[in-house]
Amino acid sequence: MSQELGGPGRPTRAGGAMVAIPVAWIVVVSVIDFLAPPHIHLGPLLVAAPAITPSLGGPRTVGLVAALAVAAQTVIGLLRDPDTLLSANHQAQIAALVVVGISLVLFCVVRERRAKELEQVRYVSEAAQRVVLPPLPRRLGPLRTAVMYLAAEAEAQIGGDLYGAARTASGTRVIVGDVRGKGMTAVSDAALLLAAFRVAAHRQAPLEELVAYLDRSVRWEVAEPGETGRFDETFITATVLEIPDQDSQVRMVSCGHPPPVVLRGGRPRTMSARRSAPPLGLGELTDPRYDVESFPFEPGDLLLLYTDGVTEARGPGGGFYPLIERITGWTETSCDAFLGRFRRDLLSHVDGHLDDDAVMIALERPALP
């Protein structure tokens, strides 16, 4: 909180110092215009001072600089032609400065009002996004966790990718998924699935029953009342895992989602499901069978869960991000260190721009002392 409150102060002080530039411009133009020959008039250049001030300050600052420019133009006119109050030329220039100054002040008022509205909207949006997709705890029982979420849409923090975790009496259940589609509809569908997962994951029901419940929840909650034809339009790929505290065998149900990767000693291994179930939400069409498979997750390993926004991230040349190839040889055993390196590598591959949301979750089972 202290960082958020302290942040805005620095730009304000910098902007206040920069206001000296238009003031200095007014002084320089006024002096040169007064010293120049009678046939040379530099007064029109004074309009540049209030014109650049909106980028440096607010309405009051702009009004002050505009008033200084008008005063300077008036003084120049009086000093240049002391026998006449003001020539027609100087009167026209003063009138132009007044009109420009008033217009710029009104522009700054509207700009600040819209900026405040946008700031409030962003605040509400970020709060809502954190409710929909709260960050994972740093520790889940014996596991350490780290998450990277890169949203493709500008000004967004989340999209249709999702993840969640819940502790049980004997271990941790984790879900990672990807909603078909983008935008607020995808965020809403992700929220529905995560809510169902949080309700049911704490129960001691077998993993296959949990996944069947999630499939029914997607079908029931995504479809509008009275609709029967949307089951084939909305679906969510997902992987649901159960990681025991005292056992190194992870139990997994895959629903059309990219397979987890275990990184051990710099060697990544893809844990592909032998029989993947269809995505969640399509159960009514396919009558799926949820097979539970297992794979080892030993102390010192990193377990990587991700969405297709990672493996389908395209570089400038059009090539996909080769996850297994890129992380081969990486010896980071800390989930934070791994994700820091991974984030830099992924953004470097796509030249800083993603076409789809990308999630990477690193779960670390610390090595035994």
Rank of each mutant, 00 (worst) to 15 (best):
S2F: 12
E4M: 11
G6N: 12
G7K: 09
G7P: 01
G9S: 13
T12V: 14
A14Q: 10
G16R: 14
A17I: 13
M18A: 15
P22Y: 03
I26K: 00
S30I: 02
A36V: 07
P37A: 15
H39C: 02
H39N: 12
I40C: 05
H41E: 09
L46I: 03
L46D: 05
L46E: 04
T53K: 06
S55D: 05
L56A: 05
R60I: 11
L64N: 06
A71E: 03
A71I: 07
A72T: 08
Q73C: 10
T74I: 08
I76C: 09
G77N: 09
D83K: 06
T84F: 06
T84W: 03
N89A: 14
H90E: 04
Q93S: 12
Q93V: 01
V98K: 03
V99P: 04
V99K: 03
L104F: 07
V110N: 09
R111T: 05
R114K: 10
A115T: 11
K116V: 10
E119S: 15
A127E: 12
A128S: 13
Q129C: 06
R130T: 08
V132K: 08
P134F: 04
P134Y: 02
R138Q: 11
R138Y: 02
G141Y: 02
A146H: 09
V147H: 02
M148A: 13
Y149E: 00
A154K: 15
A156Y: 00
L162F: 02
Y163S: 03
A166K: 10
R167T: 12
T168D: 06
G171Y: 00
T172R: 04
T172A: 10
V179G: 05
V179N: 02
G183I: 04
G183R: 01
M184T: 10
V187I: 14
D189F: 05
D189P: 02
A196P: 00
R198F: 13
H202W: 08
H202R: 15
R203E: 10
A205M: 14
A205D: 09
A212Q: 11
A212Y: 05
Y213F: 13
Y213G: 14
E221W: 08
A223G: 06
A223P: 00
E227Y: 07
E227Q: 15
G229V: 08
F231D: 10
F235R: 07
T239G: 14
V240H: 04
L241G: 09
D247G: 05
Q249S: 13
S254V: 13
S254R: 11
P258V: 01
P259D: 01
P260N: 01
V262M: 04
L263A: 00
G265K: 03
R267G: 01
M271L: 07
A273Y: 05
S276Q: 10
A277G: 03
P279E: 04
L282K: 06
E284Q: 11
T286I: 15
R289T: 12
Y290N: 05
Y290H: 11
F295C: 04
E298T: 09
L302I: 03
L303M: 09
L305T: 01
A313W: 01
R314C: 07
R314M: 08
G315E: 05
P316F: 02
G319K: 11
Y321T: 00
I327W: 00
E332R: 02
E332F: 06
D336Q: 12
A337Q: 14
A337I: 03
F338A: 11
F342H: 08
R344H: 11
L346T: 11
L347V: 05
V350L: 06
D351Y: 00
M360F: 01
L363R: 03
R365C: 03
P369I: 06
